[in-house]
């Protein structure tokens, strides 16, 4: 598969603490991530709140400026581009959010919401061409053109998410960051949106970075899954392989915590209740060490584990000194 999006050692540090005369420290939200999304591929990104998954999604789109590292999109290094140089590439990269209510302007009708990206990127002439494209977009996401003059508050959560998806499709993107797109929706509506995303990928060949804390949905929709902990990729593999044979203790804990996995949970020691996985910059060693049931003092708390690949599958990579056996 041709790589569409690639990050190299991508990171974002946020300053924290410190006053007028004292030096603060940094929170490492994202800390040196290498990630690849292929053309037409879905990569699931999982992790707890504070793991940096949303920040990573925004860094790739340069909605957040990286502290270091590179992002390459379809062969173009975009981290050093000016806003003007970035503009033509922006059209090809979109994002949909968890809460489509707060990301849709409440004063704009559906027509205006969908016309805006078309006008910004000058994709259609105003008038009948624009109108035709808007109607086509609505149909594409399973909504009727009669709703064009309505406002976001008149719709349910699932319908608003459809409008958000239609807006992102308006510019015919190659890549969409889906940031918890179904987390706020009811179960029956979740399935509708998951199906819509699958259909769109099949028809349009769009690639997704699918960010979610729900491992069941991620397993269902993804080709590959990347597990993030405290800003670091701790494991990545094909969806099938990860769910059957994760080797990182954190991934195994995450899988065991899914309701319905009681047997797996009983086999695991109780996970320490960390306040937040985000770390300050002075700490060494594996970020998961404070919570890890199999961490060893003298190794895990002093040295950051390197990324290594499984012997029988080089696409299954993990960062752990003492990986569990499959």
């Amino acid at each position: 598969m041709k790589p569409l999006v690639q990050t190299e050692k991508l990171g974002k540090y946020y300053p924290r603490g410190g006053g007028l005369f004292t030096r603060g420290t940094f929170t490492r939200a994202v800390d040196g991530v290498d990630l690849t999304v292929g053309t037409g591929e879905t990569v699931g990104l999982v992790g707890e709140s504070g793991s940096g998954k949303s920040t990573l999604g925004r860094l790739i789109l340069r909605l957040v400026e990286p502290s270091f590292g590179r992002v390459t999109f379809d062969g173009h290094e975009i981290t050093s581009l000016s806003a003007r140089e970035l503009q033509p590439l922006r059209r090809r990269m979109q994002i949909i959010f968890q809460d489509p209510y707060s990301s849709l302007n409440p004063r704009m009708t559906v027509r205006d919401i969908l016309a805006e990206p078309l006008r910004i990127h000058k994709l259609t002439a105003r008038g009948s061409e624009e109108e035709g494209r808007i109607v086509e977009l609505l149909k594409r996401v399973g909504m009727r053109p009669e709703i064009l003059d309505r406002y976001p508050h008149e719709f349910s959560g699932g319908q608003r998410q459809r409008i958000g998806i239609a807006r992102s499709l308006a510019v015919q993107p190659d890549f969409i960051v889906c940031d918890e797109p179904v987390s706020a929706l009811d179960v029956s509506i979740q399935a509708q949106i998951v199906n819509l995303l699958l259909d769109l990928q099949e028809e349009l060949g769009v690639a997704y970075l699918f960010i979610s804390h729900d491992l069941r949905v991620v397993e269902h929709i993804s080709h590959r899954v990347v597990v993030l902990y405290a800003g670091h990729v701790v494991e990545e593999a094909s969806a099938e392989r990860l769910y059957r044979g994760a080797v990182h203790p954190y991934t195994r804990t995450l899988l065991a915590a899914v309701p319905g996995n009681e047997a797996a949970r009983r086999a695991l020691p109780v996970l320490a209740d960390a306040t937040s996985p985000a770390r300050v910059a002075e700490e060494d060693g594996c970020p998961y060490f404070p919570r890890c049931p199999s961490g060893k003092v003298g190794t895990c708390d002093v040295t950051m584990p390197e990324m290594s690949a499984a012997a029988d599958d080089t696409t299954h990579r993990f960062a752990c000194h003492f990986p569990e056996t499959r």
Binding site: V194, D199, V258, G260
Partner: peptide, 18 residues
Amino acid sequence: SMPRLGGGKRRTRLPTIE
């Protein structure tokens, strides 16, 4: 309509309630 962990039918359409 609920995807299950290790459910096997990955990347297929989920049954929905229309």
